[in-house]
């Protein structure tokens, strides 16, 4: 964990977007910092996309495991947002 621009301690989080969500947001991946005191997935989305509500059908995974939007994010986590899956 490191001190952010505001002097408050922050922790890094890797964020990934996939498929139609990646296209509509215009990015596949980003690195961001969240407060050391922690945040949940919904708060992370709001920090990254302040003008855009979470689309109804978007799913989330933390460290390659499905998670809920109230799940807590830990130092160094990989958080992925994506639309319903359509494989097979």
């Amino acid at each position: 964990m490191t001190a952010g621009a505001s002097g408050k301690r922050v922790m890094p989080v890797n964020v990934k977007y996939f498929a139609s969500l990646r296209e509509s947001l215009g990015q596949a991946e980003s690195q961001c910092q969240v407060p050391e005191t922690g945040c949940n997935v919904a708060e992370l989305w709001l920090q990254l996309n302040p003008s855009r509500d979470i689309p109804d059908n978007v799913l989330v995974a933390i460290n390659q495991n499905y998670a809920s939007f109230d799940a807590r994010i830990m130092n160094g986590d990989e958080v992925a947002f994506f639309p319903p899956v359509t494989g097979g």
Partner: peptide, 14 residues
């Protein structure tokens, strides 16, 4: 396996 793969494994078709 094929049923659950289709609804849980993160693949997307375009």
């Amino acid at each position: 396996i094929i049923h659950h793969l289709k609804y849980a494994a993160p693949f997307w078709k375009q």
